[in-house]
Write a protein that binds this DNA or RNA. Structure first.
Lengths: 224, 224
DNA sequence: GAAAAACGGAGCGAAGCACTCCGTTTGGCA
DNA sequence: TGCCAAACGGAGTGCTTCGCTCCGTTTTTC
């Protein structure tokens, strides 16, 4: 098959624009949460509003797509972690990769958009793969035994919500961007160290229920 | 002086309202960042908009007051930490107390309000007292030596930005609120464990510059 | 029962929102 | 070279939400 994968230049631009849009949406969401506006996203991506709406029929559709990508990223990071021979290195890889993408960024829009089947399926797979990562590390004795997969999720969500790098980028203080990213990496390293086995102080309270993370996404039953 | 501190009932209500306003503002800021609206704050506090504006001439003034309170809280927590005999317990107390109040909540409005002298003075004192807490722990050998005061600040800011409890409260899922708070405490405990001396992996990169935290608050020099 | 003080919220002009519509630009092809 | 389809950017639209003012009401005091 001598299939020519020649991409038309206009089509290539469209693809670049799509990537820029999703990246911009991710940043806007990290900075402004649920109040992120389509105008801000398009402008940040260097793309006209018209082009945004040619690709996504509504703002909600764009956000849903972004959620799918974030979940995919999470799954990939976990699978790559499982591919590591060293279970501890697997955890480290997973957490670091997730924090960089920032799945916690999606949390603020929980409950404001409809959960598609695509999203739900990805979320299930997330649970699966994360639990596998955690139990392998538990079995190897490298992860503190009282940490659950839900604990890990919350930690990653928390660490990924650092607005500092994006805030600095948004303010145009580019000379500080490297320093901000480095600083965040240090915080992640500290937290990772706290996950290691061999600690003395047990975690407080009961292990968190996984439903805690899911329920946010369901529409509210009724108003009081 | 037999000064009668009898408080008029109407004056007591005013005080209660003020407290409710500040608490509501804190929550609104945690949930909506810089987009938090005065209407939402007043409504959440169960107070009329008119009453809000009788106490604070502008939204900015309210936020400035809130920043002062947050900085005071930070300072108090550090001083109480220093009062502990055990340097490690001091760190733990400081971090836990700060996360509960959530000074990281103020980060999103950095650069959108003018920094008053009151705020600047408090910020200086914060630096001072935090550095004291950290160096005492370093001297005692209980805090990992490569952690700086700025690292600690970033960690606390990060941990304090957990939106989960407030998000759940906002959605009216009160039955989950306790679980959410407990879950957050576990994450904090994990991070604290990572601060302990005796860890093997050194922190990546160079120690962060303190200016990283300050520059956000200064108005931008000019638009590109 | 009148003055003072604190209250809640309707209303205002301005700003911001999601989204539509359309004139322009670009590359492929006869 | 001229024409068409495709992708483009952004002004315009109706509507919501914003910060804030203004005012009628309620409560306390004397």
């Amino acid at each position: 098959m001598t299939e020519r994968t020649r991409t038309a230049p206009r089509q290539a631009e469209a693809e670049r624009n799509d990537r820029a849009l999703l990246e911009a949406a991710r940043r806007a969401l990290a900075l402004d949460g649920a109040h992120a506006s389509v105008a801000a996203i398009a402008s940040r991506a260097g793309v006209g509003i018209g082009s945004l709406y040619r690709r996504y029929r509504t703002k909600e559709e764009l956000f849903q797509r972004l959620c799918v990508l974030a979940l995919d990223h999470w799954i990939d990071a976990a699978e790559q972690g499982l591919a590591h021979e060293d279970p501890w290195a697997g955890i480290v890889h997973h957490v670091s990769a997730c924090v960089d993408f920032g799945p916690g960024t999606m949390a603020p829009i929980a409950g404001t958009i409809e959960v598609t089947e695509e999203m739900a399926a990805r979320a299930d797979r997330c649970d699966e793969v994360t639990r596998a990562l955690v139990s392998r590390a538990h079995a190897a004795g490298v992860l503190r035994p009282d940490v659950t997969a839900t604990d890990l999720y919350l930690l990653v969500e928390q660490l990924g919500r650092s607005p500092l790098p994006w805030q600095i980028a948004d303010q145009g203080r580019d000379e500080l961007l490297g320093a901000a990213t480095e600083a965040r990496a240090r915080v992640v390293a500290i937290a990772l160290e706290g996950l290691r086995a061999g600690t003395v102080t047990p975690l407080p309270g009961r292990p968190p229920d996984a439903g805690l993370l899911r329920d946010r996404w369901e529409p509210l039953p009724a108003a009081g």
